[in-house]
């Protein structure tokens, strides 16, 4: 149980936190030396770089809040660290561009779950570099998009070292005239033997006017690896809707149940219990209105 809790609020040049930091031309840099929980509220301003010293365990709760114009939080994760991150978005956001970099060194683990249920446009890009032996990363996205909003998630994991493991899971529901695009990129560099790159992307569409794409890319330049991808875009099953209605559930409530049911299995793919619980709660809160 980690008892140290810190908040970081970045709004333009104003930084509110009890943690030490220094400003450089590259951005605001934090060095985390001990196990802790971090609550990061990033509203607007310079890039934030968080360096985790060796052996640190940390749970990061990242919230992107208004006005959140192209906020950047990069993570450098040293050897043997165990970093879990939960990313969510303020309901007031309208447009958000995120471009993140995460570097993971030897024997370190990074698991990130993104919950995107708000009505806004999101262009989310993350590149996770597994740069040390036995480094691993799991990146999960659960997304509901509706009305005319566009959300795109480009998630790339690069296996640069031996015996590294990268896993992507993207589960989405898209309604009305909204757009949802998942681009999953697994990139195994030559020499990264015994590495793994796996990804699964699933989107269910509720309406004819939506745009939905689940694009898996595997770029593999090494023979001694394991890699897989599964991508599916499908329409909501009318028979499911009928079945639920035949038990007295209204069509609106039945749609919510199907949405909930479609997203919920992503929870089984999350290792960290705290991440799992937070995502489960947000799915329940945002979907089962």
């Amino acid at each position: 149980m980690i008892s140290n809790n810190y908040n970081i609020l970045v709004n333009n040049d104003v930084v509110e936190t009890k943690l030490q930091y220094h400003k450089t031309k590259d951005g605001i840099i934090f060095n985390i030396e001990n196990d802790c929980n971090l609550n990061i509220s990033h509203q607007f301003g310079p890039k934030v770089i968080i360096n985790f010293n060796k052996n640190v365990k940390c749970f990061i709760n990242s919230i992107y809040e208004v006005p959140a114009v192209e906020p950047i939080i990069d993570l450098n994760i040293e050897q043997n660290c165990h970093i879990d991150e939960f990313i969510s978005f303020d309901d007031q956001l309208i447009d958000l561009k995120i471009n993140r970099n995460v570097n993971v060194k030897d024997n370190a683990q990074y698991e990130c779950s993104v919950a995107s249920f708000n009505d806004c446009n999101i262009d989310y890009k993350i590149k996770i570099d597994l740069i040390g032996e036995n480094a691993s990363a799991i990146h999960n996205v659960a997304c509901l998009n509706k009305d005319n909003y566009k959300k795109q998630f480009d998630v790339e994991i690069i296996n640069n070292a031996i015996n590294t493991s990268g896993v992507l899971n993207n589960f989405g529901v898209v309604k009305n005239s909204a757009t949802l695009i998942f681009n999953g990129i697994g990139n195994i560099i030559k020499g990264a033997r015994k590495s793994q790159a796996h990804q699964e992307s699933k989107i269910i569409t509720f309406d004819e006017n939506v745009v939905a794409q689940a694009n898996p890319y595997l770029i593999i330049d090494e023979a001694d690896v394991e890699a897989s991808h599964a991508a599916a875009v499908g329409q909501m099953d009318e028979e499911q809707l009928y079945y639920l209605q035949s038990r007295g559930i209204s069509v609106d409530e039945a749609s919510l149940l199907i949405t909930y049911g479609y997203l919920k299995p992503i929870l089984n793919k999350i290792k960290n219990d705290k991440l799992k619980n937070k995502l489960e709660k947000i799915i329940e809160d945002k979907v089962m209105i």
Partner: peptide, 23 residues
């Protein structure tokens, strides 16, 4: 509607009940 028929007191026990994942 279908749900209103159910609430009015009708029930259909189906030959091939549908699977609903996650619920």
């Amino acid at each position: 509607s279908v749900d209103e028929r159910s609430k009015a007191g009708l029930f259909l026990g189906m030959q091939y009940p549908t699977e609903v994942s996650g619920v």
